[in-house]
Design a protein around this nucleic acid. Sequence first.
DNA 1: TGCGCTGTTGCATCCTGTTGCAATCCCCTC
DNA 2: GAGGGGATTGCAACAGGATGCAACAGCGCA
Lengths: 341, 341
Amino acid sequence: MSDQAPDSPARRKPTSYDVARHAGVSQSAVSRCFKPGASVSKKMRERVMKSVRELGYTPNAIARGLITRRSNMVAVIVSNLHFYPEILSELSARFSERGVHVLLFTLDHESDVSRILDQVWQYQVDGVIAAAHLAAEQVAQFQERGIPLVFYNRSYRDLPVSSVCCDQVEGEHQLVNLLAGNGTHKSFAIIAGPSDSVVSMQRTQGAIDRLQELGVDDITEAAGDYSYSSGRRALQQLIAERGAAPDAVICANDMMAMGVMDELRFHLELDVPGDVSVVGFDGVRAAHWSSFDLATIEQPVESMTEAAVSMLMERIDNDALPPEKRTFSGVLRAGSTVRGA
Amino acid sequence: MSDQAPDSPARRKPTSYDVARHAGVSQSAVSRCFKPGASVSKKMRERVMKSVRELGYTPNAIARGLITRRSNMVAVIVSNLHFYPEILSELSARFSERGVHVLLFTLDHESDVSRILDQVWQYQVDGVIAAAHLAAEQVAQFQERGIPLVFYNRSYRDLPVSSVCCDQVEGEHQLVNLLAGNGTHKSFAIIAGPSDSVVSMQRTQGAIDRLQELGVDDITEAAGDYSYSSGRRALQQLIAERGAAPDAVICANDMMAMGVMDELRFHLELDVPGDVSVVGFDGVRAAHWSSFDLATIEQPVESMTEAAVSMLMERIDNDALPPEKRTFSGVLRAGSTVRGA
DNA sequence: TGCGCTGTTGCATCCTGTTGCAATCCCCTC
DNA sequence: GAGGGGATTGCAACAGGATGCAACAGCGCA
């Protein structure tokens, strides 16, 4: 009588009720067969699973999430500019091991943040990893709503939030020590990232402080946006300002450092490190390539992602855990872009 | 009497019932205030919204998805190796414009696929973008379940599935024409990607066919895994086999081409393009850098992602739409790695 | 055979919104 | 003031599975 073909491809997906009817048991029995550790006899489980296979049943994670108040999803918020693909796939893999799924949010403009957060609340995620800048009142909303939040590679000195970072200041000190080791560099330039980036601020300030400790006072500053081309532009601007290239350029990240290297070598006909030394920060893949072999600080990405994931999961399982900041030391990679190193 | 502090941070999130009670209206009225185009009087909407603000209510997308059978989530499946960050953020942004969220799945090993698909079914996603290889029977499951699927940058010649591709064969023809244009190249090498990559197969076969059309018969082949270092290794192996460097190296993607360039220039002391010409495929950012300035085919990433997203959305809204394959032409970028070009 | 204990199972209710339908309201017209 | 019609609003039935509690089965032991 029905006008729907019994095996039409658009037929309704089977539910636990369908399975229960087919197996001649109650719906709750079916439910229990999918709950690890539930009290189900072997006979019951086999009977149910047989029907499950025959009907092609898959539990509905949405419905489950509604009643358990656990969606098993976490949001990962990344701002477009500074995102390394490795981190994202690393995060995704590690969450996946724990049966948790990643809902991805990318930010084009900082103004999107509140719109994004609205979405985050709606989707009932169990927790959030933020690799983007949030305002203090936005951070406060997480606390109000009881949603665990872990910052990745940025920390808020005066806010009680969890974060995983690489020690930016220590890293810059290592780089400056490498540069200053043999006294061949007199003038220094620093190319910062975007002015609203706390990480850039920490890195550049770390470098400046160490330089000043060592008695250097010829320091010029410029800023880019973390991209290759912005590194090149910043260098041009810097040289226009100074009238000559500095002895060493300290860049807030590797991308800009590689831009600087290419500008020096291919457009200004200067040798790296013969004429100018260059250092970066991050340890991205391309920095290892023979074309660059850049001196940089390698962030321990694996340890950092593992830490971020486990911190978040712990806080999802136990909401009484206080915020915690974990800082990892970066590893100096000397490369061959520093004169005399 | 309650032992729960009234403003404890862990208090239950307000639901539409709480809002309704607070505003003195029915729960369905609250629901309608969040449904665009629903019949709600201005007075009612204001009254409800006032309570919404006062209680800090956010609709629960999970519960909504349960009844509407639309989760407004799509799964994006990427296999680790060949993924460009740009594509992912591009996809995420375009879906976001349409109010759709991205659930990210990354594949480490091909064996993960069926486990991943299981997760995909459970999460009731409205559709799937796959930038990974699926077996024919896995593709069939999508049809059975009525979940729209669009492949990104890989197509199945003999399967009725939707896909968005760059024309690999045409692109290779352009590259070979560029190389062969002035008759200075006699011997050619081809570095393919992994053997299970259909894209790599198409690209290398496209190049070989065109070379043979032009009467070239000195062609050596090797394979890498799409990575920079595998390009270098493949070149070494190739030279060991031939006894000398070929006149031109055609690489299945840009990463390997850059590896080849670096191996040639920095380890074999050969000039590019003076001694050896190199071409890639993809048009990744680094290919544009002055260090490489690689001859390659630029995939029209924006058009392709837009096409993938709109194809998927159309099929989510209308499940009667037949599969469609869309192929975009790549744009030749001459660069400066081809002798005499 | 009867009793108590442990391990299973089913019942009923709950989670949070959405929506068809019917009741109601408001305002205007006659 | 009564009647009519469209716009609003509320009621109640879902969507699909989780779970506390009570009922019950099976088994060992007296």
